[in-house]
Design a binder for these strands. Structure first.
Lengths: 322, 322
DNA sequence: TCAACCCATAGAGAATTAACTATAGTAGAT
DNA sequence: ATCTACTATAGTTAATTCTCTATGGGTTGA
């Protein structure tokens, strides 16, 4: 017989016997009968090929080989205890890693959540992937990430969603724009202005365009720019108007005005999306719980739209039967 | 299912899979079929309670939990490899411990063997127990030691014996004793002299007394002394005569003369005795082999009577069937 | 698109294990 | 010397494990 077929259980039994110096005592401790323990010992000794114990004045003592096996067993068992601790931390979401795929615009707010979270769970590695909606969709299709943040989720057939943040789209103009004084503006009045737009894959642009379509309008001159930042700076510099997420604007924005356009802001919500066909890392679940509990503290209340409790319940229900 | 029933084999399989990044490849390496390995992996994952592997571009990669399990497995397996090395050293007699029980007189020569032996096998602990014959007998009865050195073995019913050294008993007198000049002396002529004797439990004394009995003689005045050393010094100081093992005398002994008494020296042999009902430590066996091979180099040739080969053969035969 | 390769699952049989009860031998303690 | 507690052995049973073959689904590369 070889050492390969030894179980950890066997080592536990052996350690208990050596520690107590008695087969019977070990059996009591382990809630086994004495012959069972005797038999295990014999099996172990056979596997090792050397006697392990000898009786000496009243108790069992180890032989040389037995002493070394005891040491090895202790080390091995404690190594696996450590492993179980690790597992527990993993399961508790206190450790591990997960990745989030974000649409561009959301990168302005998500750090407000991730900062406090990382502080509370320093042993979790979070990877962020940022891109426009189209890129995020392909990542979603390929199941590249654990969590996704979308305004408008793709098909929810294989996914669960939970809103957490308002994402109002507003029309912005340079400070001092003539219409900035007005109390109410119709979009029709703006169509002659030049609009700065994101690239076609962008969510912001898609939402704006579908709004236009619903209202039977179409834009005049446009200019395409690669990022929200570029557009914001462009608007401030008087290059034109734009529709942007309010989150893109800094808290103080003296060089930019929000125009009170009718039927604006365009209301949308960011939501966390979780694929149901991909096992969610415990850490990601922990992050969602954290977000559900600390959203109010992390972002301005006027943006909060915390519907994560429902998502969490859905996830629990989904993980139960597995 | 719990982690307790995991076998080392399972960990070996797991390590092979992680290392090669492929179930099939691991199966080939381990001379198993692929489904076998798959099943083992499933069992392991069930025991751990977490997924361990995920497939990523062309090969299997570990999850977080899997990576940690891999580390733990590697450490555990290598710890047991060390243990096997230890066992091998133990079995090779290169390491370990054993004890020898010696009759007093033999302590003058045994260090000549033990010195070179300890030098050659520095990791073996040898314990010596020295006493007179009676004390050694009780140790022998109680099975206290691994090896025993006697002149006349006790019952050999449960023991094997192998002679290795002549132990001639000679009559000694102070240098300048009148009879020291004679070429041949009868013991009868010495009976009026005072004899210095060891205590009754001593082997030397017993042998001398039984020699006297066989020759129908009995001693005159005697004086009992606790040790061979005391007797040797006493004789040199002119307190009387004595019968001593030649080994007790230093190589040069200007103050002591050996008397040419008829029927002397009393011939006897020291032998190693090994109980057959007690498992002999590998190190003790190693020592006997060493003694068998190096006796000539360690003690004066005129004392050598190396019959240890027979003992070793007997031991091998005894350990085979176990 | 097809072939090749990989992995997972199902099913089955032999072997092993884990645990028990009952019993006998040993060794300490009174 | 007897009693008691401890250990070892035997015999048994249910569960588990180990390994196989056969098969089906999925990826990848030609």
């Amino acid at each position: 017989m070889n050492v390969r077929h030894l179980t950890f259980r066997l080592l536990q039994v052996y350690v208990a016997v050596v520690r107590s110096g008695s087969v019977s005592e070990a059996a009591r401790q382990l809630h086994l009968t004495q012959p069972t323990v005797s038999q295990q010992l014999r099996r172990l000794a056979e596997a090792v090929g050397e006697p392990l114990l000898k009786s000496g004045h009243g108790r069992l003592n180890t032989t040389e080989a037995g002493r070394e096996l005891y040491r090895a067993s202790r080390e091995v068992l404690s190594r696996f205890d450590d492993f179980e601790d690790y597992l527990e931390a993993l399961r508790g979401g206190k450790r591990g890693r997960f990745s989030i795929a974000l649409v561009n615009t959301a990168q302005y707010v998500l750090p407000r959540l991730l900062g406090p979270y990382s502080h509370a769970f320093p042993d979790v590695d979070v990877t962020l992937h940022v891109g426009n909606r189209r890129q995020m969709l392909t990542r979603f299709e390929r199941q590249d990430d654990d969590l996704y943040v979308f305004s408008h989720p793709p098909s929810l057939a294989h996914a669960l969603a939970g809103r957490f943040l308002r994402n109002p789209l507003v029309v912005v103009a340079p400070q001092g724009h003539p219409l900035a004084q007005r109390e109410r503006i119709g979009m029709g009045e703006l169509l002659e202005e030049r609009f700065l737009l994101r690239e076609p894959g962008s969510a912001t642009r898609m939402m704006f365009e579908s709004w236009l379509q619903e209202h039977g309008l179409s834009l005049g001159p446009t200019l395409q720019m690669a990022s929200n930042e570029a557009i914001r700076v462009g608007v401030a510099a008087g290059m034109g108007l734009a529709v942007l997420s309010e989150h893109v604007l800094p808290p103080e924005h003296p060089d930019i005005a929000i125009l009170p356009v009718a039927d604006f802001p365009i209301e949308s919500h960011w939501q966390f999306i979780v694929r149901r066909d991909r096992r969610l890392p415990h850490a990601a679940l922990g992050f969602l719980s954290f977000a559900a509990g600390h959203l109010d503290e992390c972002v301005e209340t006027r943006f909060v739209a915390n519907e994560l409790a429902g998502l969490l319940m859905g996830l629990e229900a989904a993980s139960e039967p597995s």
